Amino acid sequence: MSILGLAASVPTVGPSHFDIIKVLRPNILALHPYRCARDDYQDGILLDANENALGHSITRSGSSDDSIFDLDLHRYPDPAQNAIKERVDHIFLGVGSDEIIDLLMRVCVAPGKDKILITPPTYGMYSVCAQINDIAAVKCPLELTGAAGEGGESGRFSVRVSEIKKAVDADPSIKLIFLCSPGNPTGTLIPLSTVRAILDYPNFKGIVVVDEAYIDFASDDASAVSLIKEYGNLVVMQTLSKSFGLAGVRLGVALARPPLIQVLTNTKAPYNISTPTAHIALSALAPASVSAMRSNIATLIASRKTLLSDLAALASLGVGQAIGGNDANFVVVPILGADGQPDNTRAQHLYRSLAEENGVVVRYRGSEPGCGGCLRITVGTEEENRTAVTKIREVLSAV
C-alpha cells in the first residue's frame, strides 16, 4: 500500500529492518485527508470558505503596535504554510510539540493494543498523551550515577540502551520510543551514538522520536537532525518556544523523511497553524532575528554558569550540587536534609515559600525518578537569578 500524496519516486532510506507501512495504522494509510478551501486556490474573490467578507471587528487601540491586525484574519490560514517550510527540508508544523506528540501516537500506535517506550525522568506529556489515546507506556528509567549526596559528586543521567533493547525484545508491540535530548527535567544531552544504536537495532521495527526542545542550548553538533538523511525511522522535534523565546506562539516542528511527513500532513487538522503564528514565525526565522536569538542563547548560557556557581555557594545551607548535564536553559538542584541526603519535605517547603512568600516561582521535581528533593530553576535574567539565589538563601537560613 502506498502513502496518499507521496510520489512513488521518493527514495527510501535505511535501516533495512524498517518498513514505515508496517508501522502506520491501517486506518491512517487509508485516510483521505480533509480538503481545505485554500488547498486549491488562495487568490481572487474568495467566496468558497464561508468566511466573513467584511473583515475582523477588532477596534484598534492606537497605543501599541497593532500591525498584526493588518493581516487577513477574516480568511482561513494557509493550510500548507509553505513560506515557513521552504526554510527547512522535510518539515511538519504543529501547534507546539505537544500536537506532534499526540499525532505521532494516533498515526502509529493502535489504542489498547500497541505501546510506546519512555525513559523517565522525562517530559510528562508523553505519558499524558498515551493515556488519552489508551496507549500503555513501557518505562526504561535513565541511569543516574554519582547522585547528589554520594561523595559530593553531581548526578549524571544516561540512556540505558541495553534495557531498551531488552524491552523491545520482550514486547514487539512497542511502536514509538521517545528520547528527550537535552532531557526535561534532567538537562542531559543524549549522544548521537546512543540514538544511532537504537535506530540500528534490528528487533525494533518502530520509530524513534528525539525531542530537542532545548537543543539550541547545547553544543552546535549535538542535534539528531544530522541523522535524518540516513534513517527513515527517526523523527526529530524542535520548537520556537525556548531558544526563540516564542512560547506564546505555540509552534513546534517535526523533521523526518518524506513518507512520515506526508502521513502527518494527511492526518493533521485542516488549519492547525494560525495566520498570526505563521507571521511571527517567519519574522523569527529572518536572518536578523536568528542572529538575535543566538546572542540571547550566549547570554543565557553565561548566566547558567553564574547561577550554578551561586547555587554551589549555598552548599552549607543544604543546596546540593546540580544534577544532570546542564545542557538546557534550566538547572536542577537537590535540597538536602541534615543527613546530607535529598529531602523532599525540605524541598517542598522551599518551593512553596519561594512562590507564596517571596515572589519567586521554581518547579518542584522531587517526585520524578532520580530527582529526589530536586527543584528545577529556569535561567532568568541576571537580576532574576540574583533575586532567586538571595531568596533561597533567606528561606533556607530561616529553617
Results as ranks from 00 to 15, higher is better:
270 P>F: 04
177 I>F: 09
233 N>E: 14
184 N>I: 09
271 Y>R: 09
267 T>D: 00
269 A>N: 10
213 A>S: 03
262 Q>D: 01
229 K>Y: 05
249 V>A: 11
237 M>H: 01
153 E>L: 13
216 D>K: 03
206 G>S: 12
251 L>R: 07
152 G>I: 10
172 P>A: 12
158 S>L: 05
149 G>V: 08
188 T>W: 01
195 V>R: 06
229 K>V: 13
207 I>N: 04
187 G>Y: 04
166 K>C: 08
269 A>H: 06
181 S>T: 15
194 T>N: 05
260 L>Q: 11
211 D>G: 00
175 K>L: 07
147 A>Y: 04
241 S>L: 04
214 Y>T: 04
182 P>C: 11
156 R>P: 01
144 L>F: 04
167 A>S: 14
231 Y>C: 02
182 P>W: 10
198 I>P: 02
173 S>F: 03
185 P>V: 11
251 L>T: 08
176 L>Y: 13
141 P>I: 08
222 A>R: 13
180 C>P: 00
176 L>V: 09
258 P>Q: 13
149 G>L: 10
149 G>R: 10
246 L>P: 00
145 T>C: 02
224 A>C: 15
267 T>R: 11
172 P>Q: 05
258 P>E: 14
172 P>L: 04
171 D>E: 15
271 Y>E: 08
151 G>H: 10
150 E>L: 03
233 N>L: 07
181 S>D: 05
178 F>A: 10
219 S>R: 14
246 L>V: 02
162 S>E: 15
199 L>V: 03
164 I>T: 05
201 Y>I: 11
181 S>H: 08
260 L>M: 13
221 D>F: 03
228 I>H: 04
270 P>V: 06
247 A>Q: 02
208 V>N: 03
148 A>C: 09
241 S>P: 01
256 A>H: 11
170 A>D: 13
198 I>V: 15
163 E>K: 15
184 N>Q: 09
141 P>H: 10
272 N>Q: 06
249 V>D: 01
273 I>L: 07
247 A>D: 13
167 A>N: 13
224 A>M: 03
190 I>V: 15
148 A>E: 07
224 A>D: 06
234 L>F: 05
175 K>V: 07
197 A>L: 01
198 I>F: 04
218 A>N: 14
189 L>G: 01
178 F>L: 08
166 K>T: 09
196 R>S: 10
151 G>Y: 06
178 F>I: 07
196 R>G: 00
213 A>Q: 08
192 L>D: 15
142 L>F: 01
211 D>E: 07
150 E>S: 13
216 D>M: 08
194 T>D: 11
182 P>F: 09
210 V>Y: 03
144 L>V: 08
265 T>D: 15
166 K>L: 13
143 E>V: 06
206 G>Y: 13
242 K>I: 04
247 A>V: 06
